[in-house]
């Protein structure tokens, strides 16, 4: 029946989310714990894995996708992302500039 197929599809989505999240977490902890990388490369891998994992969680656990019926949720998410970028970016801009002007 359709229900059985839908059940399996959704279970696969959650399990895919778990597997990807475990892999990304493992890479993040490994590059820091094993001191395998240094300098900018480390930060790129670390923040890249973090950003990817956030997307995996949104897609697999919260079921946010680009499909038409999801649009309101996605718009709200993108709008919140914009506000967050403005406020967080602004905080860093103002405070770091102030610290620099105060000499440390």
């Amino acid at each position: 029946m359709n229900d059985v197929a839908a059940y399996r599809r959704t279970l696969r989505l959650y399990t895919l989310g778990l597997v990807l999240a475990v892999l990304l977490t493992a890479v993040s902890f490994a590059v820091v714990g094993l001191t395998a990388l240094n300098g900018p490369g480390l930060w790129w891998v670390l923040y890249g894995c973090g950003a990817l994992q956030v997307m995996v969680h949104f897609r697999c656990f919260l079921h946010i996708s680009l499909a038409r019926s999801h649009r309101h949720d996605l718009w709200l998410l993108l709008f919140s992302g914009l506000i967050i970028a403005l406020m967080v970016g602004g905080t860093f801009w103002v405070l770091l500039s102030q610290m620099a002007r105060m000499g440390g």
Binding site: I84, M87, V88, T91, F92, L95, M99
Partner: peptide
């Protein structure tokens, strides 16, 4: 709520 956390992250960063 995500905005609250984002700003706490920003405070941590500064």
């Amino acid at each position: 709520d995500a905005l609250v956390f984002a700003l706490l992250f920003a405070v941590y960063g500064t």
